[in-house]
Design a protein around this nucleic acid. Structure first.
Lengths: 219, 219
DNA sequence: TGTACATCAGTGAACGCGCGTTCACTGATGTAC
DNA sequence: TGTACATCAGTGAACGCGCGTTCACTGATGTAC
């Protein structure tokens, strides 16, 4: 039998002080933050487990059930945050630019740059780690859908001002461009050892050729 | 105590008849086939476990160690097969076509079509299921490298014959085109509910615009 | 021609691990009387 | 003003599962003498 130890000195964490009544939602927040930290650390959401998230949040495994029906629901909530933040980053970068061609290029560059800066988040949004994200169809107002629409609108603006020829429907071009951006993003993330050309140049080249921008924008 | 049963009638598989001496390699083959079946069934290699593969091959879990140091080694062997087969499919489709522009388009279409036909294989080759595949760098003679080179050569042929303007280096264009093809492939696989335009049209549009093919090839 | 032995191909029990999920519980705080 | 009770927020032990890995083993076949 071991000698008794002053409880205050024990390394095992004591029982967590419960949140104030009515503030139970704070734990929900902490769980999402803990999950986000794990995603950033591991580069994807495959290692996320109920127990791992709970432990990272300093909470009993069962406490996750207080706020999420299961791990998947937590992942979906996480993905939704990421989508919102991602869209905000693109909008913020493009909003101050008046030239439509330049705005389109900046929007595309920020898209891929965000993926490179946050590979874990990007994989959560566009990878296979969160199955429910793949079950939405085309017409539903999903984040991908609105990303596509924004891109199409940006392309349409180029066509209206004559910066690009109106030789194809903006939505079709947006679909094509979107898939190319995704390819750039995911490949640069997944194959970091490949000697990629500078992102700025690659994006400008891609957009110019794909959309048919009349003249290269000034640097 | 249950009544004794005629051993020949027991459902439990009896001990496997060992391969002939010197033919131990046959089990290696069977393990790869079993793993391939699981990949085709599940759509990726994440569910692959040593025990699952062994069980699918009708063999004790420990028997895998007779041919592979661990599961990762088996996955790498599987990926290598897929790469070889994939490259062969592209070469076969493009080999009979003399017009360089058409050959390039066919090559690209077959690329994406193969991915759609074998999503599991494609994810094994280009996803994150087999970590070692990502550690090779640029110059190494990896399958991706040679895919890229073949694509560059196909583009160069278009430029030589005047089917495309020589306004950019073929290798740079190949990198760009490759990432776009990957984006098309992986997105069409991962987001099957999205109403994608017909593959033929999308690929022709993509290649025409990106490489700057002079005139649309005849249908 | 016979026999002991080495080698090959594969088995099966056991281990410790992290996992999701269940269940009854604890302890603080607010509320009704 | 006091007290019983309901509610909220979170705990912790226990379960059965599939996993990778270890270890000593089995049984057939070839080979040396």
């Amino acid at each position: 039998v071991s000698a008794s130890v002053d409880p205050a000195e024990q390394s095992a964490t004591p029982r967590r002080r419960a949140n104030q009544r009515g503030r139970g939602e704070r734990l929900r927040e902490e769980l999402l933050e803990a999950a986000g930290a794990l995603v950033a650390e591991q580069g994807d959401a495959r290692g996320l487990s109920l127990r791992a998230v709970a432990s990272a949040a300093g909470v009993a495994a069962t406490s996750v059930y207080l706020h999420f029906a299961d791990l998947e629901e937590l992942k979906v909530a996480l993905a939704q945050r990421y989508f919102a933040e991602f869209a905000a980053a693109r909008d913020a970068a493009a909003s101050s630019i008046t030239d439509p061609a330049e705005a389109l290029i900046v929007r595309c560059r920020v898209y891929v740059q965000y993926a490179l800066d946050h590979p874990g988040r990007y994989r959560v949004m566009f990878g296979r780690d969160v199955p429910p994200l793949h079950e939405a169809d085309d017409a539903a107002p999903t984040p991908s859908r609105s990303a596509l629409d924004t891109l199409a609108e940006s392309i349409a603006a180029c066509q209206r001002t004559g910066a690009a020829p109106a030789d194809a429907a903006p939505t079709g071009l947006a679909t094509l461009l979107f898939s190319c951006l995704h390819g750039q993003a995911i490949l640069r993330i997944d194959r970091p050892r490949f000697s990629w050309p500078p992102l700025d140049h690659a994006i400008k080249e891609l957009v110019t050729r794909l959309i048919g921008l009349r003249a290269p924008t000034r640097n």
